[in-house]
C-alpha cells in the first residue's frame, strides 16, 4: 500500500446476485480519521458493499483492502481490524448489554484483565448505565443502536463500518450517533458510513459516494458535489394551495422547477443571481400570489441527488421520518 493512511480501499468492486446488479465497479477510499459517506436510496447496493468489505459475502470482481490486507485473500486479518454495526449486524436480544459486550470482547480475544475495564468504558461512554443489565429485547431503538455501535468498538477497530446507523431513530438518538461518529473519526478511525439521508452525509462525511442501482453516480466532498450542480436555488413558500397552483402555472415552463405540495414550497434554480430572483418574485406578486417566505440558498444534497440520478429523492422521501 503506497499510502499507509489509506484504511479502506476498493477498486472496481462488483457483485451480482443472478441478474441483479448489486454493486458495479465501485471504487472508493477512506483514510485514517476520515468519514466516507455511501449515499443512496433503499436497494442502491450500499449494504452489499459493506458486506463485501466486512468479509460477509465474496467479491465477484475487483478488489478491496482494509488496512492493507486483501479482503478476499486475508479475511482473518481483516476481521481483527474492523468493526461492523447497523443494518448488516445485530446484537443478541436475549443477552444484556454487558453480556453482549462481554461476548464480543471474548470473541475478539481481548485479554481477560482488559475485558471488564473495556466494557465499563463503553457502557459509560455510550451512557448505557441505566439499561446495561436488562435484556436487549427490552431496548428502545436508540438504546439498541448505542449497544450496536459499542459492540463494534470493543476491539478498537482501525476501520469501522456503519450500515445505516440512524435509520429508524428519533432525532435525539440520531444526534447522539452523529456525535459518536465525529468523535471516532477525530480519534483516527476510518469510517465507512452508509445512509439514505442526504443531510446525514452532508453533516458527517468528508467524502461522499452517491450510488444508485449499484453504480457510482457521483463522488467528491459535499462541497464539490454541491458545486457540480452549481446553481443556487430560490426557495419560495406560499400560504395555501390556491397560491401554489397560481405559482405552478406561472413557473411551469422554467427548467428544473420543483413543486412540493406538502410543504407548499417551490424550488427554482437560479442562473443569474439576484436580478433573476427579483424578477421571479415580482412576477409572482403581479399574478397575486401571496408569498410567506423566500430565500436564495446554496444547493443541498437533495438537489444534487435530483440532478445526478434524474429522479427526485422519492425512495428516500418515502421512508424518511
Amino acid at each position: 500500500m503506497s499510502d499507509s493512511n489509506a484504511m479502506i480501499v476498493t477498486n472496481g468492486l462488483t457483485k451480482h446476485f443472478g441478474d441483479v446488479v448489486a454493486a458495479e465497479d465501485v471504487t472508493l477510499s477512506a483514510r485514517r480519521g476520515e468519514v466516507l459517506g455511501l449515499l443512496g436510496p433503499n436497494g442502491a447496493g450500499k449494504t452489499t458493499v459493506v458486506k463485501m468489505l466486512t468479509t460477509l459475502i465474496p467479491i465477484d470482481r475487483g478488489n478491496a483492502t482494509v488496512a492493507g490486507f486483501d479482503v478476499d485473500r486475508n479475511p482473518e486479518q481483516v476481521r481483527r481490524l474492523i468493526g461492523l454495526a447497523g443494518q448488516a449486524a445485530a446484537v443478541d436480544e436475549k443477552l444484556t448489554a454487558r453480556e453482549n459486550l462481554e461476548l464480543f470482547a471474548r470473541l475478539y480475544k481481548l485479554p481477560r484483565q482488559r475485558r471488564h475495564a473495556r466494557i465499563d468504558e463503553l457502557v459509560e461512554r455510550f451512557d448505557m448505565g441505566t439499561f446495561a443489565d436488562r435484556a436487549a429485547s427490552t431496548y428502545s431503538g436508540g438504546q439498541r443502536r448505542r449497544l450496536d455501535i459499542a459492540a463494534a468498538l470493543v476491539a478498537d477497530p482501525l476501520a469501522l463500518f456503519l450500515d445505516e446507523p440512524t435509520t429508524g431513530l428519533d432525532p435525539r438518538s440520531r444526534a447522539e450517533v452523529w456525535n459518536s461518529v465525529r468523535e471516532l473519526a477525530a480519534a483516527g478511525t476510518a469510517i465507512l458510513l452508509t445512509t439514505q439521508y442526504l443531510d446525514e452525509a452532508d453533516q458527517l462525511a468528508d467524502q461522499i459516494l452517491v450510488i444508485d442501482q449499484g453504480r457510482t453516480v457521483a463522488a467528491g466532498t459535499p462541497e464539490q458535489l454541491k458545486a457540480e450542480v452549481g446553481r443556487d436555488v430560490l426557495e419560495i413558500h406560499v400560504p395555501d394551495d390556491t397560491d401554489l397552483a397560481l405559482a405552478q402555472n406561472l413557473l411551469a415552463s422554467v427548467a428544473g422547477v420543483l413543486i412540493d405540495p406538502d410543504r407548499r414550497q417551490v424550488d427554482l434554480p437560479i442562473t443569474s443571481g439576484a436580478a433573476q430572483s427579483l424578477d421571479v418574485l415580482r412576477q409572482l406578486d403581479d399574478t397575486g400570489v401571496t408569498i410567506d417566505d423566500f430565500q436564495l440558498r446554496r444547493p443541498t444534497l437533495d438537489d444534487v441527488f435530483l440532478a445526478l440520478t434524474g429522479s427526485p429523492t422519492t425512495p428516500t422521501e418515502e421512508v424518511r421520518r
Binding site: 468479509t55 448488516a88 445485530a90 446484537v91 470473541l107
Partner: peptide, 13 residues
C-alpha cells in the same frame, strides 16, 4: 434470521 450471526461472521473467531 436475526442477524447476530452476521456479526459473528465478521469477527475474528
Amino acid at each position: 434470521s436475526e442477524g447476530v450471526t452476521d456479526r459473528f461472521r465478521s469477527l475474528p473467531m
